[in-house]
Amino acid sequence: MTKKNDSTNWPGQTKKTTLRLAKWIILWVLTVAIVSFGAALFWGENHLINSLAILLNVGVGIGVIMAMINHLKKQDEMMQKVQLEAMGISLGVAIVGGIAFSMLDSTNVIPFNAEISYLVMIIAFTYLVSVFVNLRRYK
């Protein structure tokens, strides 16, 4: 049996796409910081600069999505199944949780605004737990 080098074998390819995805996500977080802190500390409500900064954020966000698709394509079939199930659960939680959270806010049941950042955290947590549980299931 011949051994494959890092660029052609499964772990090598996965490591490469994971690193690429991580770089895109770091870049995306930086563009979020530019929009948030830039408006708060430097250029205020300058529409042109804010629009350009948000455009940059969306552009890099598209890069994140492409990197995520590439990352998923390089996974093997079982790992794709694990990821798909985790994403399905996360999507369900996002829709059900998001609508419920919004209604809690609109009916003033909760004393604070239903910020999207809470929902993003819930989705991320659900995704991580789902991947962990699915991986344990196949262990």
């Binding site: 049996m1 011949t2 051994k3 494959k4 074998n9 499964w10 772990p11 996965t14 093997d76 079939e77 079982m78 790992m79 991986l135 196949y138 262990k139």
Partner: peptide, 11 residues
């Protein structure tokens, strides 16, 4: 490695 899958998948 021969099958191009993860060790977890083989297991």
């Amino acid at each position: 490695s021969a099958l191009d899958v993860s060790r977890q998948t083989v297991n």
